[in-house]
């Protein structure tokens, strides 16, 4: 059984074909990058996988189960978590609350049990808090757990969003431009963080990124999109040599 397979995924917005016949297969534990010029359809691919857009045609299979047609929250609960290109934290809640909420989808307490604080809920709340602090330690934000999420600097907000996604217990993590807006030092830290998290939580990572140095260092395989169509895929070395990729990025010489 394949871990994650996308076949002939197509998205049309009226007459515009945003993504055309997109195919990809991920093996468990891989880190794969999706690159391409602006407007190539990368985020659209993510939005289809994560259940935000209903694909015009094509299939998405995750661990043998068909994902299309499921709602975003169901897809997350089946083990596919994502982050957003424009960070979407709950800025008015505290840092630790942002991560605790991610446990909510796995809560066993009922609605009444939680409101009445029955013993099961109290135990679960403690687990939520401790688990959230664990993930915050992982991304080095545990000292800021009581701060308002919106008050954190940009790079930390990115890490917090990753911690929040991890707290849903995913096997496949979709990262949409995780290094955007980071300086070279922060980017290096992020790279180490992603590698460490993959080992520890046995993650498979699929990411979109414009920082080529970052992508080439981190990813084991890369797929390139241009105008919604896959123009190349392979190892970082192969992609760097590829004529069509160079053309897509730099224009014809």
């Amino acid at each position: 059984m394949e871990f994650f397979t996308v076949r002939n995924l197509t998205m049309k917005f009226g007459g515009l074909v945003a993504v055309n016949d997109f195919d990809i297969t991920l093996k468990k534990g891989e880190i794969v990058g999706l690159i391409g010029p602006n407007g190539a359809g990368k985020t659209t691919v993510f939005n289809m996988i994560a259940g935000y857009y209903a694909p015009t045609s094509g299939t998405i299979h995750f661990q043998g189960k068909l994902l299309n047609g499921k709602k975003a929250n169901e897809i997350t609960r089946s083990g596919v978590a994502r982050t957003f290109q424009n960070i979407r934290l709950f800025t008015e809640l505290t840092v630790v609350e942002n991560v605790m909420i991610a446990y909510h989808c796995r809560l066993r307490s009922t609605f009444l049990g939680a409101a009445l604080r029955l013993p099961l809920y109290r135990r679960e709340e403690k687990q939520m808090y401790e688990g959230a602090m664990e993930f915050l330690r992982e991304v080095e934000l545990e000292d800021l757990s009581r701060e308002q999420a919106g008050s954190l600097p940009y790079g930390m907000q990115r890490r917090l969003e990753i911690a929040r996604a991890l707290a849903t217990g995913p096997q496949l993590l979709l990262l949409d431009e995780p290094a955007a807006g980071m300086n070279p030092n922060e980017t290096q830290d992020l790279l180490q963080l992603i590698l460490r998290l993959r080992e520890k939580y046995r993650l498979t990572v699929f990411l979109i990124e414009h920082d080529m140095k970052f992508v080439m260092q981190l990813c084991e395989r890369i797929q390139v999109l241009d105008y919604g169509t896959t123009i190349a895929s392979g190892t970082p070395e192969e992609i760097q040599q590829n004529e069509r990729v160079i053309e897509a990025y730099l224009g014809e010489g």
Binding site: A72, E74, F84, R88, F90, A114
Partner: peptide
């Protein structure tokens, strides 16, 4: 007040602040 303080209440707030983000962490809005 207890409901709002519980994780169901937090999930409700999450839906208020950002429905798409709430869905992304498995909350059925």
């Amino acid at each position: 007040a207890r409901l709002v303080r519980s994780s169901y209440g937090m999930a409700m707030k999450a839906v208020k602040y950002d429905e798409a983000a709430a869905e992304s962490i498995g909350i059925n809005a």
